[in-house]
C-alpha cells in the first residue's frame, strides 16, 4: 500500500512539518521504499497473538504523593527561546 502525496501531507500536517514542493517526490519515494519493506509483515497471520507494547512484563511502580520539587524556573527557562515575567511566549493564539 503506497503512500500518496495526500497521505504524506496529512501525516506531515499532524506532525507539524512542512513538505517543501521540490523535495516532495524524493520524500515520497524514500517513505514508500520503507513502507514496502515494512509491508512484508502484512502477510503474517497474527490473529491469536497478543500485541506486545513493552519488553518488560511488570506493573507500574507507584510514587508517594509528596510535593518536593523546588522552584527552579530561572534554570529551566535558561534554554527557552522567548520568556517574559516567568511565562513562555508564543505567537498569539486566536481562539
Amino acid at each position: 500500500m503506497a503512500l500518496s502525496a495526500d497521505d504524506l501531507h496529512r501525516a506531515a500536517k499532524l506532525a507539524r512539518l512542512n513538505v517543501a514542493p521540490q523535495s516532495q517526490q524524493a520524500q515520497l519515494d524514500a517513505l514508500n521504499a520503507v513502507m514496502e519493506m515494512v509491508s512484508a509483515m502484512q502477510s503474517v497471520d497474527t490473529s491469536d497473538v497478543e500485541p506486545m507494547a513493552h519488553p518488560l512484563f511488570q506493573s507500574q511502580v507507584l510514587r508517594e504523593d509528596v510535593a518536593v520539587e523546588p522552584n527552579q524556573r530561572d534554570k529551566y527557562q535558561a534554554s527557552a527561546p522567548n520568556t517574559d515575567a516567568g511565562y513562555y511566549l508564543v505567537p498569539k493564539v486566536i481562539e
Partner: peptide, 20 residues
C-alpha cells in the same frame, strides 16, 4: 518551521512514517 528547519531529513522521515 521550527521543526522543519531544525530536524534533519532522516528524523523527519521517521516522524512522518511514525505518524502515518
Amino acid at each position: 518551521r521550527s521543526r522543519s528547519e531544525a530536524f534533519g531529513e532522516e528524523v523527519q522521515r521517521r516522524i512522518i512514517a511514525g505518524t502515518y
